[in-house]
Simulated scan of single mutants.
Amino acid sequence: MTAEDETRATVQTSDAYLSEFFGQGGGALSYVDPARASGTAVAHRCVMLISELLASVPLHIYRRGERGQRDRAADHPAYSVLHDMPNPMHTAFDLRQSLIASILTHGNAYAEIERNGRGQVTGLHLIDPGTVTVERLRSGRLRYTVTGSPSKVLLQDEVLHIRYRLARDGVMGQSPIQIGRETFNLALSQNDAASKQAAKGFRPEGAVVFAQSINPNQKADVLDKLRQKIERNDTTSGVLVLDGGADWKPFAFSSKDAEFLESRKLTALDICRIYGVPPSAAGITDNATYSNIGEESRALVQRCLAPMARRIEQTMNAALLTEEGRKLFFIEHDLAGLLRGDMAARYAAYRIGRDGGWLSANEIRRLENLPEIEGGDDYLTPLNMATSGKQEGV
């Protein structure tokens, strides 16, 4: 297939995995509205926590050195796009946070790549994932149709496409909300039930039982009086006076009897598991202690943020750097700041590195965002250590 065959003309497509991508594989509870699901308190906190933390850490373009060292390539044309302003409307934080939130909500995130006449990246522009249709061409490459006013067709080299978990077609990303749709459906149902109870003022439902049969008119009269007493006037006393041998039989379970609150807590924990966020980081502190909160903070970086960061880095390296450029440059997050301990722990670690001879004073000062000092590039050599096999008398 020649390059001329890869055109921007729109074509009719039929994606066999489209229904699976949207979570409509079967069952009445298959589809979950991403907007509603991501609006639940725990899901919103998980999405914002991951997206804001990753968007706040430095994302640099590095230049590989001959001996494996790395230097920030601040002179690279795409450096300011990722570090400062990707376009006149958004900051780098805005764009990166929106992309990650889109991944965690819809499973896919898109940005249009703007290039200059030399093919260098000079801007990134967000694209609403709900307006994008992806087509696989016979060449194996992708074409993106963006609906809107006006609609446009973009080729693979013009789109930054970050996916969550690949679907079976290898093209689209699967939404975590649709993957865990049963959990989110349960959470939404529980929210609806709680809202209905609150709207009714938690008034119990039940039946009025008469010892003898009554006619339909009497039943309607009894129901009308009960509604006037219980539902229509919130200031009315809750005491009921029933005559004619009538007896009130409540049949609604209270929240405590149905363990409703405990069930909502378990659902919140399940949502944290879907996103890989420790409960304490999402605000669930029932079993939190001072020690395990610190461990969970490190687990958040190592088990949740680090894989997401690597997913974004590799996609950006492939989309924003040329094949020749990837031999010299690479894009990477700096997660070191999130893994740093408290001041006492950091300074103790610096002392070990300084006394061991593999950290200089200026390297330590750079880690602490302090200016370099004269003579700070020298390394110490411990007097009581020597190369193995070269001690005196050996």
Rank of each mutant, 00 (worst) to 15 (best):
M1V: 14
A3N: 12
E4A: 15
A9G: 06
T13E: 06
A16K: 09
Y17R: 11
L18Q: 07
L18R: 09
S19D: 13
G26T: 10
G27H: 05
S30N: 11
A37K: 01
T40V: 11
V42C: 04
A43L: 02
A43S: 10
I50C: 10
L54C: 03
V57T: 08
P58S: 06
L59C: 11
R63N: 08
D71F: 12
A74T: 14
A74S: 14
S80D: 12
H83I: 03
D84V: 10
D84G: 01
P86Y: 01
T91A: 00
A92C: 02
F93I: 07
L95N: 01
R96G: 03
I100F: 04
S102E: 11
I103M: 15
L104M: 11
T105H: 06
H106Y: 15
N108K: 01
N108Q: 05
E112R: 14
E112P: 03
E114N: 01
R115E: 02
Q120D: 13
V121T: 07
V121H: 07
G123W: 03
G123E: 04
L124N: 02
H125F: 10
V132I: 04
R138H: 15
G140K: 15
V146M: 00
T147K: 08
G148P: 00
P150M: 00
L154D: 00
L155Q: 10
Q156L: 06
D157K: 10
H161S: 04
A167G: 12
D169L: 09
V171M: 08
I177R: 00
I177G: 00
R181G: 02
T183C: 07
F184A: 02
F184I: 02
L186K: 09
L188N: 00
A194W: 07
A199H: 14
K200F: 10
P204W: 01
V209M: 15
V209D: 12
F210I: 02
S213P: 13
I214G: 04
K219C: 08
K219M: 14
D221Y: 10
R227I: 02
Q228N: 09
R232T: 14
N233A: 14
T236M: 11
G245L: 09
K249N: 12
P250H: 03
F251M: 06
A252T: 15
F253E: 11
S254K: 10
S254W: 09
F260S: 05
F260M: 10
L261D: 05
L261M: 09
E262W: 02
K265R: 15
G276E: 04
V277G: 05
V277E: 04
P279N: 05
I284M: 12
D286I: 10
T289H: 02
R298I: 15
R311E: 01
N317W: 05
A319E: 04
T322R: 07
E324H: 07
R326N: 05
L328S: 13
E332C: 05
L335Q: 07
A336F: 09
L339R: 06
R346Y: 12
A349G: 03
A349T: 05
G353S: 05
G353C: 03
R354F: 04
R354G: 01
G357S: 00
L367E: 11
N369D: 14
P371S: 09
E372A: 14
E372P: 12
E374T: 09
G375S: 05
G376Q: 01
L383C: 09
M385Q: 13
T387A: 14
